[in-house]
Computed example of a mutant assay.
Amino acid sequence: MTTAATRPATCLRRAVVRAVERPTPRVLRVTLAGPDLADLPPAAPDGYLKMFFPRPGDVEPAVPPMPEDARPDDVSAWFRTYLALPDTERSPMRTYTLRRRREDPVEIDVDFVLHESGPARDWVLRAGPGDHVALTGPYGLYAPRDEHDGVLLVGDETAVPAIAAILEDLPVGACAVVLAAVRDVTEQLTWDTAGDVTTTWTTPDRLVDDLRSVVFPPGRPYVWLAGEASAVRAMRRHAVTERGVPKGDVCFTGYWRRGKSEEQTVREALAAAERGEAPEDD
């Protein structure tokens, strides 16, 4: 029997907004709390959450129930049920990095980059203490091994919160090279890290090209790439084919897809899985 202390990351949790602040002009940081977070499992420093937001006029997100001990098959079935809801009823879903976690009681921070439009932007701009969200996760991918001599972290503005979290987790003196893209200098951060970090800031339209001139960490680096999906694929090809990084040493994630909502992306991924197709791998 699954207890509250052993619920997996896949289960659906509810949380309440504790505070909202603006660390940079284009980022709103939302602090979430609530009893459902008490057993939130640990994750890699790039841990991310699938978040569900109430539609305008609703108090809580409209999402179907999920088994408390949900397995991957249960989650796939749950997402199909969720996606089958009418557009006028289904709460929007987006993915965000778990930027920071505090204990006793558990609180988490989530950074929202303010895009030009979208349901998450609409929600966070009106969010305040007491507002409700639902979430699953966290899920994390960052996993360098002992044989790696350093890390290369590359991403656009949606990946900056994860890059910051990874750098905060580095041991003393660990070598890291960062290439990060933001809209302007007001979004550039000063990292809180014990690592030995070299950072190059660029803009989203220059990210792929600028990677070509970056000096990778010496030895055998672990390469972490995140951001818009097509840009991530291009950067991965560069790392593997032009820099000779083994595919197994590259962690790559398309945080978003140009011209597609997250619901569309998940729907396509579920359909591909049903057809037995492997994820895109250039």
Rank of each mutant, 00 (worst) to 15 (best):
A77G: 11
A77D: 14
A77E: 15
F79R: 07
R80I: 02
T81C: 07
Y82P: 03
Y82W: 09
Y82E: 01
Y82Q: 06
A84K: 05
A84I: 06
L85H: 03
D87N: 09
T88R: 15
E89N: 08
E89C: 09
R90P: 06
M93G: 07
M93L: 13
M93T: 11
M93R: 03
R94K: 05
R94A: 07
R94F: 02
T97S: 08
L98M: 11
R100V: 13
R100H: 14
R100E: 15
R100P: 06
R101H: 14
R101Y: 14
R102D: 13
E103L: 14
D104R: 11
P105K: 10
I108E: 06
I108N: 11
I108F: 05
V110K: 02
V110H: 00
F112S: 12
V113L: 14
P119I: 12
P119Y: 06
A120W: 02
R121M: 07
D122Q: 10
D122F: 00
W123G: 00
R126W: 00
G128Y: 01
P129E: 09
P129V: 08
G130I: 00
D131T: 00
D131M: 08
D131C: 08
H132E: 11
A134D: 00
A134L: 01
L135T: 00
T136L: 04
T136I: 10
P144I: 06
P144D: 03
R145W: 04
R145H: 14
D146C: 03
D146H: 12
E147L: 05
E147D: 15
E147V: 08
H148K: 12
L152V: 08
L152W: 01
L153R: 12
L153P: 04
V154C: 05
G155V: 05
G155C: 09
G155R: 05
G155S: 04
E157V: 08
T158D: 01
I163H: 03
I163W: 01
D169F: 03
L170E: 15
P171T: 10
C175A: 07
V177D: 09
V177L: 02
V178K: 07
L179A: 05
A181F: 04
A181I: 07
V182R: 10
V185G: 12
V185E: 15
E187D: 03
L189E: 15
T190M: 04
W191S: 09
D192I: 15
T198Y: 01
T198G: 07
T199W: 01
